[in-house]
Simulated scan of single mutants.
Amino acid sequence: MSFSTHVLDAATGRPAAGMRVRLEHDGRTLAEGRTDADGRITGWEPGNGTNRVVFDTGGPFYPEVVVAFTVTDPAEHHHVPLLLSPYAYSTYRGS
């Protein structure tokens, strides 16, 4: 079971480097860190069931973005990208 994310600043067209991110499961923090120079985090392990990835965006309107996702097959890789702009964000299940 593995988890990764990629955060992009859609307003600038650049990766969101240095953003604090944490992975939570059952009220516990499983992993936390900062995105690398390419806006990525890889190699984290989510828990079975519902997980939350919390992006500390520090934005004026969205200071954080929380994305909940469910792990039903522990053998699958789970990739949750985040696209940010000052007043909007989007996410999807990546590959």
Rank of each mutant, 00 (worst) to 15 (best):
F3L: 06
S4D: 10
T5C: 10
T5Q: 05
H6M: 07
H6R: 12
H6Q: 13
H6W: 08
V7C: 02
V7H: 01
V7N: 00
V7I: 13
L8Q: 10
D9M: 09
A10M: 11
A11V: 07
T12Q: 14
T12W: 05
P15D: 07
P15C: 07
P15A: 10
A16C: 11
A17M: 06
A17D: 11
M19A: 03
V21C: 02
V21T: 01
R22M: 07
L23F: 05
L23D: 00
E24N: 11
E24S: 07
H25L: 04
H25F: 08
D26A: 15
G27Y: 05
G27F: 08
G27A: 09
R28W: 04
T29E: 14
T29V: 15
T29D: 04
L30K: 02
L30Q: 03
E32G: 03
G33M: 09
R34C: 08
R34T: 15
T35E: 06
T35S: 10
T35H: 08
D36W: 04
D36M: 03
D38M: 06
G39W: 01
G39Y: 00
G39Q: 02
G39P: 00
R40Q: 12
R40G: 04
I41V: 15
I41F: 03
I41W: 00
I41G: 01
T42V: 13
T42D: 13
T42F: 04
T42A: 14
G43Y: 11
G43E: 05
G43D: 05
W44E: 01
W44G: 02
E45G: 02
E45R: 14
P46L: 06
P46H: 04
G47S: 06
G47T: 04
G49N: 11
T50P: 01
T50D: 10
N51I: 00
N51P: 04
V54T: 05
V54Y: 00
D56V: 09
D56K: 03
T57C: 09
T57A: 09
G58R: 09
P60I: 09
P60V: 10
F61Y: 15
P63N: 13
E64Y: 11
E64D: 14
V65T: 04
V65A: 04
V65R: 01
V65W: 01
V65P: 01
V66N: 06
V66G: 04
V66D: 08
V67E: 02
F69K: 07
F69C: 05
T70D: 14
T70P: 01
T72H: 09
D73C: 05
D73H: 11
P74C: 02
E76T: 09
H78K: 12
H78G: 02
H79K: 05
P81D: 03
P81A: 09
L82S: 00
L84Y: 02
L84K: 02
S85Y: 03
S85I: 00
P86K: 09
P86F: 09
Y87V: 14
A88I: 06
S90W: 06
T91G: 08
Y92H: 15
Y92G: 10
Y92P: 00
R93Y: 14
G94D: 12
G94H: 10
